[in-house]
Write a protein that binds this DNA or RNA. Structure first.
Lengths: 204, 204
DNA sequence: TATTCACTAGACAGTGTGTCTCGCGAAGAG
DNA sequence: CTCTTCGCGAGACACACTGTCTAGTGAATA
């Protein structure tokens, strides 16, 4: 029972590859038929992988969706907005951040919709991915609110806390999707509306 | 094989009663554990009814939730707002309508949340109930938008169509729940915020 | 008294989940 | 070149839920 040292190269790479293939399969499956329930078997078949492999890698159905959420957060560039780097104008930065997020929402609309809805029905079913996204956005909006206040760009009678609540609610995926899917508006129209809403509600 | 005439009194009443008991059971079940999947067997047991009876009466799982949605629309008094009767002031009527809907949203929050989320994941799974509710509200908001325009209460540069889109998005259950559950705000605070949002975004 | 009808009880096939065991075959170590 | 390790496939198992169908039972009604 001697313990050998194992440094993985090709093997780990291959493993990473199958993991990626599975995530791609869920994503694709959700895009193709967002309204139909997803079975692990389907996903496995699409990824060219055994069903047990999915459980082996992700642990459970929930783990799979959790991983998908994280993958989306990283790959979709949900912090592209922050990447833009804070300028000097709080107001412009806020608007830029909203305008940056809208195309991302639109690109991954079907998948995000499913993830968010699943999280509403049963938070455990998607691991903590959605919650983590919400918390990150919450922190971001609190920061924007604070910054608006410092630059006296906040509407009178609006506290920083209120502004944070409002920014969070009005600039999120849910609001986007209400306008985009619920009212069938084009992406840029939605972006304009969302910026306008936020400006009128919280800005001086 | 003679066909007798049957005028139901007690029998029809009893049938109506079981139907009601089943709907009450789903409602209760959803309130108790909104995040756990609902099985027909559970519901049947809670209603003191056989599983097959549920299928007999509602046809399918979807039919059951569809009926629940309709029941809620009637019982919850989603048109209480309209019942108030249109006054002379479009603006006040709009705000009153929003203030009237918020407590209803809050009262049935868990059940509405589940219904809306299910409808997002699979519209067929809830019959057309949620869609019907959305359409009714859509018509109502279009009416409010029109009325605001007629009384010159619309913000400059906001078209009637835009106003309708915005009213629909900003005064719906989704927005309510973002603030109420997503940010853990008390009901009256949410009502205040929603009125404020709408006022600032669409009103002159 | 005869009939109709709401409802029960339970079997049945189908589909999904999650776990576990066995085994192959290729990457890696010596 | 041999032996180990480990990623992965194949498939069985128990369990839960859905939807359909059949054969009743008992109370309301004619």
């Amino acid at each position: 029972m001697s313990t050998r040292k194992y440094e993985q190269r090709l093997r780990a790479d291959a493993a990473e590859e199958t993991r990626r293939r599975i995530l791609a399969a869920v994503y694709q499956r959700l895009c193709q038929a967002p309204t139909e329930p997803v079975s692990i078997e389907q996903v496995a078949k699409m990824a060219g992988v055994s069903r047990s492999t999915v459980y082996l890698i992700f642990g459970s159905r929930a783990g799979l969706f959790d991983a998908l959420g994280d993958d989306l957060r990283g790959r979709g560039g949900f912090n592209r907005a922050a990447d833009a780097g804070p300028g000097t104008d709080a107001r412009k930065d806020l608007f830029a951040s909203i305008r940056a997020s809208v195309p991302i929402f639109a690109e991954h609309r079907e998948v995000l919709r499913v993830l968010y809805s699943m999280a509403q029905l049963d938070p455990d079913a998607v691991g903590g991915a959605v919650q983590r996204m919400a918390e990150a956005r919450s922190a971001g909006m609190a920061w924007h609110a604070q910054r608006l206040a410092e630059q006296n760009e906040l509407r009178p009678n609006v506290t920083v806390d209120e502004a944070a609540h409002l920014l969070w609610s009005l600039s999120g995926f849910e609001t986007f999707d209400q306008l985009y899917t619920g009212r069938a508006l084009p992406v840029d129209a939605v972006a304009d509306l969302m910026v306008t809403i936020v400006e009128r509600v919280v800005c001086a």
